[in-house]
Design a protein around this nucleic acid. Structure first.
Lengths: 199, 199
DNA sequence: TCAAGTAGTGAACCGAGGTTCAATACTTGG
DNA sequence: CCAAGTATTGAACCTCGGTTCACTACTTGA
């Protein structure tokens, strides 16, 4: 009975796969999707280009996974902020400032996740995650409207608009490399007003 | 004294150029940038591919011009709405509904202008036009704040957020092909609230 | 040590689509 | 009609980065 894939080997395989993902993340964070060839990824991970294809069917799949992992981290952070106790305004403020501060702390990566042109497969993933953000805000808004803390409104539309407002208000600062000190509080105030909450 | 470029010839050249631009617009409106090869553009304009390159240095230049013309039309429409007399709320409402209605009337084109992945040169143009939209709203907000009709706020941030809100709230409807009847009024209400205007 | 089988390699391959250019068809003033 | 110059053509070219695959190096249990 010859070769079997032992736990030790599996572990090494997993480590290689992880290092590929890691190298890709690092490259995206440094130069965005644009400057991210498979050859560069492989070099970054210390493997041959062919090895990348033993772990991912194609480049899009690799990028999709990297995008998914990075974005899920952000979504989780915002969801945690939304789950904290407090008034609607406080919770929304927490969400917005969490999102904005994290984005501004890693501007190149944030730009890649939010706005950089990507191929259609990754773009589809981006839509999925925008929906995840939207759902967080929609739930918050829906509850507050039901409880009478917010004026009647279509939570889906409001939530989508909030997500767009956050993204757009940060695109220019992300390009510039840093936001003015006032951007985050201004944006949170904007969002609080937009859903009709009292500060 | 042989060949000179006579007015008649110049007219024909201009017409060819225009038909190339027109064919590109039609193609983008129909299938987006993704399904828009130079060969297809040439076929649509009834010329050979080489002819396209006698009018534009490269594909990106052609696309940039098409994008610019199409977007300028939209910006002008919104600017006209902003210039109409009325309260801040009324004028902002007019801007938002103008933008939204026009987008929903030509969803594929609107998606191409607002959100479809494009190559970096066209993306740069997109940023320029987002800034144009932003400037319209920023001027409106600035004036109203100065006049005491709106609470103090950073007009640049608010305006950027408004633009993002409009874009994002429409992306899903544009993908779906049509918006719910409520989307436009909900969005206008959102924007009016967001800048602190009284309806 | 060995046979069976898998992971890793990286140079070569490849396709799609933008771009070029030699050849052709026109246009112009005389 | 002609010479000089221009517009048009479209098949061939080129590029470039994703993908493949024959080959090598390992790993495994007996």
């Amino acid at each position: 009975m010859p070769y079997r894939r032992t736990p030790a080997v599996q572990e090494r395989l997993d480590a290689t796969r992880a290092s590929i993902v890691e190298a890709t993340q690092a490259l995206v964070a440094e130069r965005g999707y644009a400057g991210c060839s498979v050859a560069l990824v492989a070099a970054g991970a210390g493997v041959a280009t062919g090895t990348v294809y033993r772990h991912f069917p194609d480049k899009a799949a690799l990028f999709t996974e990297v995008f998914r992992v990075a974005t899920q981290r952000e979504v989780d952070a915002v969801a945690a902020a939304a789950a904290a106790p407090g008034t609607v305004a406080e919770r929304v403020e927490a969400c917005v400032s969490t999102f904005a501060r994290r984005a501004l702390r890693a501007p190149r990566m944030a730009y890649a996740l939010i706005a950089e042109p990507v191929d259609p497969q990754v773009e589809a993933e981006r839509l999925t995650y925008r929906r995840a953000y939207r759902d967080i805000f929609a739930a918050l808004i829906d509850d507050a409207v039901t409880a009478g803390h917010l004026p009647a409104q279509d939570a889906q539309v409001s939530a989508a608009a909030v997500v767009g407002a956050m993204a757009e208000a940060l695109v220019v600062p992300l390009h510039a490399g840093a936001a003015s000190r006032r951007t985050v509080p201004e944006l949170t105030a904007f969002v609080v007003r937009s859903i009709g909450a009292l500060p």
